[in-house]
Every structure is written in C-alpha cells, then in structure tokens.
Amino acid sequence: MVAPPETILNCLCLNIMSLITLSALKAETDQDSELVTKCLKGDREAFSALVAKYYKKIYNLAYRFVGDSEEANDLAQEIFTAAYQNLKKFRGDAKFSTWLFQIATNRGKNKFKYLKRRGYFANRGQTESEDERESFQRTIPDFSTNPETMLASKQIQKVVQDAINDLDPDHKEIVILRDIEGFSYEEIAEILNLPEGTTKSRLHRARMVVKEKLKKVLS
C-alpha cells in the first residue's frame, strides 16, 4: 500500500523542521560550551558574552522571585557572581543555560526565604493603604469585555505578582520557570532535579492558588 503524496510531504516537512530545531539547539549549546571553555582559560570577554546572552532572563526571574527592582538587581548580580566563581565546577553534562538557571533558582529561593523571614513581603503588603485598594477595585476594567487591556493593566500585574509572592518557594519556582520564563517541563525537571510528574502537579497546584487570588480580587 502506497501512502498518499500529501502524507509523505507532511512527514518530510516535519522531519526538516525537527532537524532545523535540533541543529539550532545544538549550535546554541556548542556556542555556550565554547564560551565556557574560553572563560576557564581566563577570557573575560567570553564570560561577558554569556552574561549578555542571559542577563535579561535572569534579571526577570530574579524580579519575579523578590518582586522588587533593587533586590532583583542584587540577586541577579549574585547569581552571575556565583556562576563565575563556580564555573570550574561546570562539567558540561547539562547545558550551560540549565546549569545557570539551577544556580538562579537556588539563589532566588534562598533570597526569597531570607526576605520572607525578615518580614519583607509582609511590610510591603501593609504599606498599601485601604484607599489604594478601593481605588484599585474601582479601576478594574470589565474582564468580560476587555480581557487584553485587563491583563496588561498595572493593577493586574501587581495582583499577579502579589499572588506569586504568597506562593511557597517550591511552587513559586515552577510557576516562574514555566509560565514566566517559558521553559518546557523536561527542562524544568532537569533544572530542579525533579520528576516530570511532580513538576506538573506542583505547577497545577501553584496555578490554582494564583487563580483563587485572582478570582477573589476580580470577582
């Protein structure tokens, strides 16, 4: 039995796409490995190139962990400093980006715990006055008629960030990696050294918590 020409064409297209994606990934990995090798030989420019490649993502991740620009800046600097100092320990078993985000999530979790212990988030919550909350309630646009505006609004951004701040560290890191940084489940499982099933269930629980908070505020 001969397959129809469309099916063969589809298969070919899929294969080509997969090859292109794989080669792009491989090229990226090779490029990082090369830069790491240069770094280990003392090439500062190579490390700067790695920083330039990842610092926006790392800063964004740091910001989502601590919810404040200054603290996020400190945290991101700390992450890159740790990466630079521990570069010798990078064995190349995983991708450099995976290793870097492992450092980032560990440091982010520790920083978050540290700030929480010091009542940092509680104090921030208390500074918001009742008036501000009321005005916030008044300015919420109608979700049913204008969802795009709604999601883009500063208020919603703040509600979501507050909800993230309230998550416990184990759930928080998964939400950040998956929904904010856009990593795949496989990558998250590798970064956090967790089984994929655990990653999925934790993500689901975290999303449900955030959902309840959003519902409470927006309903």
Partner: peptide, 19 residues
C-alpha cells in the same frame, strides 16, 4: 485566565548599568 495573566506578565528590564 490565570495562566494567561502569568505568561503575560511584562518582562522587567534590568538597569542599564547592569553589566
């Protein structure tokens, strides 16, 4: 909506002198 809100969180730009 929650997932959309999370994924649509704006990317926060690092300070210019970060590097």
């Amino acid at each position: 909506f929650t997932v959309q809100a999370l994924t649509n969180l704006e990317k926060v730009a690092p300070p210019e002198d970060f590097m």
